[in-house]
């Protein structure tokens, strides 16, 4: 079947390709993030493990950032940019600066939706040399409802009820679809698909902790501690939860 190709010289371009050395500007630092919006809260969670390859750089490197805002503590915006952590840090630092300038220039709080649009322009501004991150922005809208925006590395974004990002996003997302958005669940009495309702904060917190402890079991990049930042009308609360360290 491949007989005609056997005449190829023994030193084909596969084996005899010249050795190339090139600088690769990106790295992957592991970790996973997760955001869920509720009726009166928004929550952004992420593990604190920071890795390269098979090594742990640190077990505790909090990665959920809070942007202080005009209009009181309830207008605070939480941000996480997961992937290549140096790019994530650079993006969040610049975003914090731009958010501050916004309040000086307009003398009003930066809304989460405006912040999301700003993140889009910042990400797309580096379209030809992207920030290697999956970004999530969360907070409360003007009416006090939770909102979550998620972005790809070059700025495509969407408002969502919940979103997972980072190393173990593919493990978390189906669980979230099922438990938060009630996908593939039917009502036993009526036979109709169950409809997603806003989960109370207590339930969501349990869900998030279970999600991360489960993902820690099966993904080697996730572990050590879980950091959860919750935005309510009282402001931003931080919670830590221990994860397995192996």
């Amino acid at each position: 079947m491949y007989a005609e190709h056997f005449s190829e010289p023994a030193t084909s371009h596969v084996a005899s390709a010249p050795i190339e050395h090139q600088f690769y500007p990106y790295a992957s630092n592991g970790g996973t993030i997760l955001a869920i919006a509720g009726a009166d809260y928004a929550l952004l969670a992420g593990d604190t493990r920071h890795i390269t390859g098979y090594s742990i750089n640190t077990r505790f490197r909090p990665s959920i950032h809070t942007l202080e805002n005009l209009g009181g503590p309830e207008r605070a915006i939480v941000v996480a940019a997961n992937g290549f952590s140096a790019d994530g840090d650079a993006l969040v630092r610049r975003l914090a600066q731009r958010a501050e300038w916004y309040t000086y220039n307009h003398n009003k709080p930066l809304s989460v939706s405006a912040c999301a649009r700003l993140v889009q322009t910042m990400l797309y501004g580096k379209r030809t040399f992207p920030y290697y991150v999956h970004t999530i922005v969360a907070g409360l809208d003007e009416s006090g409802r939770g909102e979550v925006y998620s972005f790809d590395p070059v700025g495509s974004y969407e408002r969502e009820q919940c979103r997972a990002g980072g190393s173990a996003a593919s493990l978390l997302m189906p669980f979230l679809d099922n438990q938060v958005n009630k996908k593939n669940q039917y009502d036993a009495a009526t036979g109709l698909p169950q409809v997603a309702t806003d989960l109370p904060l207590e339930e969501t917190l349990k869900l998030v902790k279970d999600a991360f402890s489960s993902v820690t079991e099966r993904h080697i990049h996730v572990g050590d501690y879980l950091e959860i930042k919750i935005v309510t009308k009282e402001g931003v609360k931080v919670e830590y939860f221990p994860l397995k360290r192996d």
């Binding site: 593939n184 669940q185 036993a188 489960s214 079991e217």
Partner: peptide, 20 residues
């Protein structure tokens, strides 16, 4: 066995009839 899994916070048992 230093890595025993802790107990989950929630139960994920689906009521009978959940699957279509």
């Amino acid at each position: 066995t230093p890595n025993e899994r802790s107990i989950k916070q929630k139960s994920y048992v689906f009521p009978r009839g959940t699957t279509a």
